[in-house]
Structure formats: C-alpha cells, structure tokens
Write a protein that binds this DNA or RNA. Structure first.
Length: 331
DNA sequence: AATGTTTGACCGTAA
DNA sequence: TTTACGGTCAAACAT
C-alpha cells in the first residue's frame, strides 16, 4: 500500500536532502504540485556559486534538516500505523461502528421492506476528499462480513470541522450532496447525531454521520463510511466552512482519532494550536508519541522548520510577493 | 407535483 | 429473556 498517499496525516515536508539527491526539475515540480508548498533548493543550486566552506556548512545544515525530517516522517508513520492497527483491532470503538455491522449480512428478512443492499463496488476516487479543506482525521478500513462468508472493506474516515456554535443545522459542506435520512440522540453526547446518505444512493454507498463534539460544541465530527464511486459535484457555495472563513486553502483543524488520543492541530491559531485529548484506552507508546508530537518543542521545531524553508526559498517569496501585488491592483 | 427534512417506530445487536 | 442502544425506515410535513 502506498502509505505516503494513503496516510491521513502526511507531514513529510519535503525538507532537505530529497531535493538534493534528485534535483531533477520534473521531480521538484511534481513535489510542489503535490504539497502546494515550494520547496527549497529546487532549481537554485545550479545558479549559485559558493566556496567550499560555504558548501560544507550548507551540506551540514542539509544533513541536519534531513535527519530531522526523517525522524518526523518516521514518527508520523509510526503514529499512523498504530492508528490503523487500532482501527482494525477494535472497529467498534469510539462510536465508529459501521452501519454495515448493524444490518444482518445474511438475512434481510424481518424488515418491513427489503433494504437495498449497499453497493459493494469499492472503486472510485478514493482520495477526492483530500483535495478539499475538510481535513481527514481518521482513516480506517473496517471489514464488513458478506453473505458469502467473505469480508469487504469499508473505508471509515472521521473528519472534524469547526463551525459556528450557533449553527444547529449539522451541515458539513464537503463538496458532495447528501440526503438526511435520520437523526438520533446518542447516549454519550447530548447533541443529536444526523445520518446522511449520498444523494447518488443507491448507486453510491457512502454514508456519513454528523454530530457535534461532546467536548467542544463548535466542532462537528463527521464520520464517512465507504467511498464515493462518482466525481464530486462542483457547485458554488458548497465549499467547506474553513475555506469560506479563511479565504484560503489552509485547513483549519486536523484531528487524529482512532480509539486513541485525539490530536487536534488547529492551524487557525497563531503558531498552530495543538492539543491532545485522551479518548478511550490508548496504547502507552502511542500516547507517548502523541504527547511528543503535541509537545511545545515539537511544535516550535515544526513551525520554525516550515518558516525557515519557506522564507529561504526565493521562488516562494517571489511568488508570494507577486500574489500579494496581484491582490492589490490599486496600489 | 416533486423533492427534501423531520421524527416516531421498528429492527438488529450486544450486554 | 430482557433491556438498552444505534441505525434505518417511512409517513407526515415543509418548501
């Protein structure tokens, strides 16, 4: 499996040596296209002359940064792997029990009407959600038993979005069209949980549950089950709230939660607010990693490194200046 | 008339 | 077997 693409949290900032090792312009362009962040050193080395001493200093810095990058990548990878294992080992935790487990796989008998069986085709644009500003929080494949004894995997994603606390509509704009088919008050949360089905159902099997966070009523948690098998309908006004509020494409919050601690990276706060909320029983070492990731040192290092890389990239600063000038045509 | 939402009832599962 | 709970249905209602 392509972990780098599948991981819900990809903090590989493309910092340091990879660019040096493979300075091909095509690769640099590809990386920028993927990360939307201009990377340093891309296309600069050729036009710069330096002494041996400067080169050594730069090389040492590159080595240091790349080592740090490698550690961060490993840490995130470890964190993600743990989360995935948790999801597979205890898919019933944290209220993420898939709907498919409630429906008997063998006997539709007993219902007043035969329910349409969910489309088992899992094909489709698996990553389309990631292009919008809804931030994927958890990403777990849940095995759902079929009548023939086999299991199919349902992708379960959990997304946290900050909304206006006075907004009671429980509408999470994610670019897709949904039809509400139920609402329930659950035991562990005074806020009602809304159930939505993709408007393209029954051909599209995706469902989502939306509920305000019990801890923070300004945060809604949307749990997506399954994958869309159709492209996202593009309609104005269906942008996520983060995009409309911030006016940019920067996600407002990221949460990681799978029967373990919840990590929230609130990028709308200065310096990036990071908090760890203990949820359920987490593995001790997972907790440790989470705390480490959420520590002020980690945070400061991450912010500093990002700032250093961005401000050090002349192409980025030039592009930023050009973009600002374009936004100010009258001056 | 068509479409979407609300809400009480029903069903399956787990304890 | 009973009970509690989450998930879903479908009639009623709203737009």
């Amino acid at each position: 499996m392509d972990t780098a693409r599948r991981s819900p949290v990809c903090l590989d900032l493309m910092v340091g040596l990879p660019m040096v090792r493979e300075p091909s312009p095509a690769r640099c362009a590809g990386m920028r296209a993927e990360a939307h962040i201009s990377s340093s050193a891309c296309g600069r080395a050729a036009s710069t002359t330096m002494t041996n001493g400067e080169a050594r200093i730069l090389e040492a810095k590159f080595t240091e940064v790349s080592e740090e990058n490698r550690r961060l990548t490993e840490m995130i990878g470890y964190l993600y792997a743990n989360n995935q294992n948790f999801g597979r080992q205890s898919p019933e935790g944290e209220g993420e029990q898939p709907a498919s487990t409630a429906a008997s796989p063998t006997s539709p008998v007993g219902k007043k009407r035969g329910r349409e069986s969910p489309d088992t085709s899992d094909s489709g644009d698996a990553n389309s959600d990631k292009k919008i500003n809804m931030v994927e929080a958890d990403h777990v494949d849940v095995e759902s038993p079929l009548s023939n004894g086999t299991c199919r995997r349902i992708k379960v994603k959990k997304v946290c979005t900050r909304i206006d606390p006075s907004d009671t509509s429980l509408v999470v704009k994610d670019g897709y069209q949904w039809r509400k088919y139920g609402q329930k008050v659950t035991r562990d949360n005074p806020s009602p949980r809304a159930y939505f089905r993709c408007a393209f159902a029954p051909s599209c099997p995706v469902k989502k549950k939306v509920q305000r966070s019990a801890e923070d009523s300004s945060v809604v948690e949307a749990t997506y089950e399954g994958e869309h098998n159709h492209p996202r309908p593009t309609r104005d006004g269906e942008l996520p709230s983060c995009a409309t509020q911030g006016g940019g494409s920067v996600p407002c919050s990221i949460s990681i939660n799978s029967s373990g601690p919840t990590i929230t990276l609130d990028l709308t706060k200065n310096g990036g607010g990071v908090q760890v909320v203990e949820a359920g029983e987490a593995q001790p070492d997972l907790k440790k990693v989470c705390r480490e990731v959420a520590s002020p040192e980690f945070r400061a290092a991450l912010v500093e490194q990002m700032a250093r890389e961005l401000t050090g990239d002349r192409k980025f600063t030039d592009a930023l200046a050009a973009a600002i000038l374009r936004k100010l045509p009258d001056y």
